[in-house]
């Protein structure tokens, strides 16, 4: 269904905050594995050489003037991808956690879904998390299942692929706060997009620190629970200053 015209344009969206150290290896590996994909690095207000490193590797780099968080960076990435006519895109980590060899699995599943989530917890995954985080994730899984009637094993995975209609929706409506991935899943399901999960393997991160502190996790967990219970979803952001067309 995506095979119109002569070529499907696919883009990798990579949010990066101070990832100059791990980014070159990630970009080099992407260039080897998927040489025909556009690579969009969203430099989320980095204070190191992230932007220079990205441009040197031939990626498109969008530089935010200050740090907006992964959600804010992704929203900008979606907007750029949509405006530049990309047919499908996937989110990819700058810290080397995601394995480029798994991209093909995600994109294959996109043939019969609007959005694909790469799960770390199904059979082929091999991924461990701490106890409080595991508990929070378990509860979120259960809530998402109650809300959507659909079973997800990994609601917070950031390894995801999206078709153009989802790119358009997320260009203005992507949740910009922390735990964006859980919220984005809810937004996509509420909007009636079909979302499927495929098993992927992931690696240990090569750079950066895990972005989880227990207190912060607890706060955002409560926030997402309220969002789930409130049931209204997010309204369209009225603050789009520029029309969607480039």
């Amino acid at each position: 269904m995506l095979r119109y015209g002569d070529r499907v344009r696919t883009a990798a969206i990579i949010p990066a905050f101070n990832e100059a150290e791990s980014l070159p290896a990630v970009l080099a590996e992407l260039a080897l594995t998927v040489p025909d994909h556009d690579v969009i690095v969203v430099d989320d207000g980095s204070t190191d050489a992230t932007a220079e490193v990205a441009r040197a590797a031939g990626a498109t780099c969008l530089s935010l003037p200050f740090n907006l968080g992964i959600g804010g960076a992704m929203r900008l990435g979606f907007r750029h991808a949509f405006e530049s006519g990309v047919d499908r895109a996937y989110q990819f980590d700058a810290d080397g956690q995601h394995d480029p060899s798994q991209i093909a699995h995600l994109l294959a599943a996109l043939d019969h879904a609007d959005m694909v989530v790469g799960s770390r917890f199904t059979d082929s995954g091999d991924y461990r998390v701490g106890r409080s985080r595991a508990l929070a994730m378990g509860l979120l899984r259960w809530m998402v299942r109650l809300m959507s009637g659909q079973r997800f094993t990994d609601t917070s995975s950031g390894f995801r692929a999206f078709r153009r209609p989802v790119l358009e929706a997320f260009a203005t409506d992507y949740p910009v706060e922390y735990m964006d991935s859980v919220e984005a899943l809810i937004v996509a399901l509420r909007r009636g997009f079909t979302v499927v999960e495929v098993p992927v393997t992931m690696r240990e991160r090569t750079g950066g620190v895990p972005s989880n502190r227990n207190l912060r996790l607890a706060y955002h967990f409560v926030r997402v629970l309220i969002l789930l219970v409130a049931g209204t979803g997010r309204r369209r952001s009225p603050s789009s200053l520029r029309s969607a067309a480039p």
Binding site: L62, S63, L64, R75, L76, S239
Partner: peptide
């Protein structure tokens, strides 16, 4: 946030 996005674009 909207302005930051605008600036990046």
């Amino acid at each position: 946030r909207a302005l930051a996005e605008e600036l990046a674009l």
